[in-house]
Simulated assay, not measured.
Amino acid sequence: MNTSSPTVKNGDLLIAEPFMGDTNFDRSVVLICEHNAVGTFGLVLNQMTDVHLGDVIEDIHTDLPLFVGGPVQQNTLHFIHRRPDLIDSSICIVDGLYWSGDFEQIKQAVNLGTLTERDVRFFIGYSGWDEGQLDGELRQKAWIISRTQADFLFDTPTTEFWREVLKRKGGEYKSIAHYPVDPRLN
């Protein structure tokens, strides 16, 4: 019996198994920004809040939405983008997708309108796993792994993201995408 878990890499998407049972991650898709020997850092891509960036950052004048990046340190702000030409010190996650960077440049680009929600997403909090924790969840089949592409990430409606990621995987995953939230109501 093979008890090893699939390998996770930066840029992978963790798709919550439909009946995971963790309310923090119901039907969530988590982008892995950093995975190494000491742990994993990710951002939930499809949990939008009713709060906007301009509500939490005083000198930003925008209605860009904030997403819940995960249950850890929800007093922190993180961002991903696809405009390294506008933002110095960005960290490449996968081709065309970047994490973090010079926040002063972000604020300026957002206020000028040169950086829009088609190119950037902001998160409060993050998803984190200590060494070995994510491997254990993968062995329990709590997550389905897929790769991401920047265009798909930014161009797919948030409300359909979980389903669309599964549909793109095809095969058995395509049918999982249609599972009802509560099978008792089916």
Rank of each mutant, 00 (worst) to 15 (best):
H81N: 01
H81P: 00
R82D: 07
R83A: 12
R83I: 05
D85Q: 09
D85R: 09
I87G: 02
S89D: 14
S89I: 05
S90V: 04
I91E: 08
I91F: 10
I91C: 05
C92W: 01
V94E: 05
D95P: 06
L97P: 01
L97R: 00
L97Y: 01
Y98A: 03
Y98M: 02
S100L: 05
E104Y: 10
A109Q: 12
A109L: 09
V110D: 06
V110P: 07
N111W: 06
T114C: 13
L115Y: 07
T116L: 06
T116M: 04
R118Y: 09
R121P: 01
F123L: 08
F123M: 09
I124G: 04
G125A: 10
S127L: 04
S127Y: 02
W129D: 05
E131V: 06
L134S: 02
L134M: 07
A142K: 15
I144T: 11
S146P: 03
S146H: 05
Q149I: 12
D151Y: 10
D151F: 09
D155C: 09
T156G: 11
T158E: 14
T158R: 07
T159F: 07
T159I: 12
E160L: 15
F161M: 15
R163D: 10
E164F: 09
V165K: 01
V165T: 12
